[in-house]
Write a protein that binds this DNA or RNA. Sequence first.
DNA 1: CATGGGATTGACT
DNA 2: GTCAATCCCATGC
Length: 206
Amino acid sequence: MTPPISDDTLDRDFYEKSPVLVVARELLGCVLVSRLGGTLTSGRIVETEAYAGLDDPASHTVRLSRSRARMGGHPGLAYVHRSYGLHDTLNVVTGAVGEHAAVLIRALEPVDGLEVIRERRAAPTIADHRLLAGPGNLARGLAIGLSNDGRDLTADPELHITRGEPPASIHASPRIGITKAADWPWRFFDADSRSVSAHRRGTLVT
DNA sequence: CATGGGATTGACT
DNA sequence: GTCAATCCCATGC
């Protein structure tokens, strides 16, 4: 029996806000919960990136048809993308239907299911706090794959996000690994977390 | 149908 | 710091 969605699960109103930068910041400190693969695994979100709609040259929605269909849909739906043929990455659609905005979840601090996460990562020498650092790593650790594209995170017992304590200090920096709009400071991270994926300097936001 | 780029990662110099 | 693995999808012939 899968437990019901809890009261503190982020709802449609949370994801529907604009601009996407606000949602990207507010997701920091929330907890991504997965029961995919039959075991509870979860982590506290410490790093996100915002991708805006058709005016953001770096967003998949301007280039990829599947992304365009997904990101133009309802806020709170998962958009899972395979990157470099190897790694799957998790995004959440935000804003109004047709706005084509999404937030990429880039890093978590492990909370539940550490043993299973470590098995899935097949990385015996990695420190606990680094197991879910990086978008491909967290998807692997929480058993999130391409087949989970389109899940509704506001109503899915197996994949959703719950409210948490916001970080004391949030920094912003340019987004990682993109070539277009590479100077937009749309990556946000918890300045005090050791689980942030890349050690790039940021500027204080809060 | 052939080709090339990409929201990455870990191993290695 | 460099580099290759690997596949989805868009583009062009």
